[in-house]
Design a binder for these strands. Sequence first.
DNA 1: TATGAATGAGGTTTCATTCAT
DNA 2: CATGAATGAAACCTCATTCAT
Lengths: 220, 220, 220, 220
Amino acid sequence: MADESDAHGGTVSPARGRKAGRDPADRRRAILDAALVVFAERGFAGARMQDVATRAGVAKGTLYLYFKAKEALFEGLVREAIDPVLGRMEREFAEFTGSTRQFLSVLFAHLANEAVRSPRRHVIRLLLGEGERFPELADFYYREVVSRGLGLLRAINARALERGEISSDAGLRFPQLLVAPLLVATAWEGLFQRNETLDVAGMLEAHAEIVLRGLGWRDS
Amino acid sequence: MADESDAHGGTVSPARGRKAGRDPADRRRAILDAALVVFAERGFAGARMQDVATRAGVAKGTLYLYFKAKEALFEGLVREAIDPVLGRMEREFAEFTGSTRQFLSVLFAHLANEAVRSPRRHVIRLLLGEGERFPELADFYYREVVSRGLGLLRAINARALERGEISSDAGLRFPQLLVAPLLVATAWEGLFQRNETLDVAGMLEAHAEIVLRGLGWRDS
Amino acid sequence: MADESDAHGGTVSPARGRKAGRDPADRRRAILDAALVVFAERGFAGARMQDVATRAGVAKGTLYLYFKAKEALFEGLVREAIDPVLGRMEREFAEFTGSTRQFLSVLFAHLANEAVRSPRRHVIRLLLGEGERFPELADFYYREVVSRGLGLLRAINARALERGEISSDAGLRFPQLLVAPLLVATAWEGLFQRNETLDVAGMLEAHAEIVLRGLGWRDS
Amino acid sequence: MADESDAHGGTVSPARGRKAGRDPADRRRAILDAALVVFAERGFAGARMQDVATRAGVAKGTLYLYFKAKEALFEGLVREAIDPVLGRMEREFAEFTGSTRQFLSVLFAHLANEAVRSPRRHVIRLLLGEGERFPELADFYYREVVSRGLGLLRAINARALERGEISSDAGLRFPQLLVAPLLVATAWEGLFQRNETLDVAGMLEAHAEIVLRGLGWRDS
DNA sequence: TATGAATGAGGTTTCATTCAT
DNA sequence: CATGAATGAAACCTCATTCAT
């Protein structure tokens, strides 16, 4: 949704994308969207408040009406970037009646969207780069996203074991293994796209295949 | 947090017990080591040359005798951080007579060391965070590390297929899947260690297990 | 030595009794005035932006709102120092009905003012000292001041010849000779004033006398 | 004599010109020659000791064996740049038996050489630009060059008056008028050469003509 | 004596933040 | 509420000077 063109340009162009409606909530949204792009482009220290303002279509001073400081903006960015997708998957999982194989397909498709195509993919890279300086932010992310996500993955594994779909508990012990390729995809897009394109969908399909078989999948 | 100087082990420089040796090569090394830590802590833009100098035990101006500018220092950092480990593994693989399963164990052990314990692990995080702003650096890393690494992984898969150890070519098509957990480990150490420790060795073991089985492993 | 602020006389800015007026144009003027003094005192490289700022009564950063860089400030200084005096003389000459002798008197009086008493006299010294490093600036000055000035001098000589007031065309061929003493006066004020005062007005009078007679003056 | 090519280049080329023989006096000379060029190119503050050293063919530290500091080098430069030409002219004048007209020809020829072609011409420009910051240097120059030169010019005028060659004492009162065109020539060469070439010899000839006639010259 | 690596004060410039309008 | 001109701390980098060799 948010405009992401000219991501590599020098100076920020006079704000295309959403132009900050009069509604305070709109403004806040516009600022956060702009901030995501700008922080992603240049990192925390390298990002300029002026660029955020320009891209959000507001004046520099206005930023400070919504966020006390650059740091607060960065934190707000990460905090409000978490997406309902996780909650949706949790609910979907609770109601899902098909096979684990099927559910994994759906899950990976959603996560791939989130981690590779959505502008929120940058949040991961930002955290990777800046997380050490913002421990509470890392904590927050762990609490709100990571631990919940791993919880969901564990639940999936547990149910699959219970149902006899798989035989290994490796996925229960290391749910990270299920989503590791997503991190690779995110990193690859940002860094090596130009050198070699990566077929993300194909990779995730292959991954699902390997993992299920590797966990002892057997059609019930 | 933990201080990481003397990261490169080896013998202590002969002259002047402490203080980064008088030999120019030693100085260069000391500067790069310091830079790695400082850049890792604060990112490229956030790092201060003064901090690098102080940590390296030299004056600010001295940095510029070894590196023309901050950017050159960052680049030098990444360029000289690549380690002989990859070349060693390539040679070892050529001579290795045991099973693929055994070789993967060795490989993962080495890579885990490199990606999780060596101070060079920060290089990966730095690239993830800053790489987009240093395209030639990303190119360099792709050329010297990524493409070679993936080449090795493909060779491993090819030989395993040839020998009939595995039956799936998924690892040949997406060698990234074999090392994806390493990226997770690196990221986890930097961000979520405090919230939940990750048993990297255990995870890699489980990963090897899953992957081999997932690729159709059969003892020959 | 002598303080030269308020060099431009005129009316005091209406708002805020002192302190360089709040009007952007006033600020610009104050900065340029300050820069003239500071650059004149220490040369381009020796001048400190902080000193310019302090003398202009603004913060260091403010300078950069008006001029992109030190160099731009220096250029602005020279460009905006050219004075309407030349245009005025051109017009006056076109309408002047008296003798060339009379007109030269007027001209020298004006130029002496400009080159010896006005703070803009420093511009000449600055150009002399730094001009070689700022070729476009020298070009600009040649175009806007020198060539026009020489043109006026040639016109004066041509008319005098035409009218039979003088008989030599030396002034037509080398109009520089007419203003050479002004350069001497400017240099003298800056350098040797303390050692020996120079009676500029007297010198110019003597110069006019010599030149006219030297060009074959005859009262018509 | 001293090499003056590449006067406008960026970095100083590895010292052509005289290459600093082993004799200390030679070295000193080489350093001063180099300093003249470098200071002339960039002004006092802008000149780099490293550039002087490189051009003189010595190491940076060596400069400090001959001159205590940059400032001392600059002063030495000006002090030792004064040339025997003035003394020679004084002696020649004392012995000269020809007409004042003839002597002026000789004098102007010599001075033109000194002020336009010799590398020492830069000294004048340097003093103009930096003199205000080095009052003792200006004093020195006044004492050693200016006052002596003006003295000679006055003597010339006095003798011409005495002999009845001229009738005006204007040259006696303002001897500066006799050499003003030399300053113009020096300035012109440095600044406007590219825009319009100046025939220095022709101008000086015209100047002599005008001045003599203007002072009431009559062949005796 | 000559060298040039090392030093660190000091300069230019940027940019987060404030505040009068 | 919104603005953007002004501020000044802080960063990068240069270069005069020193001193061990």
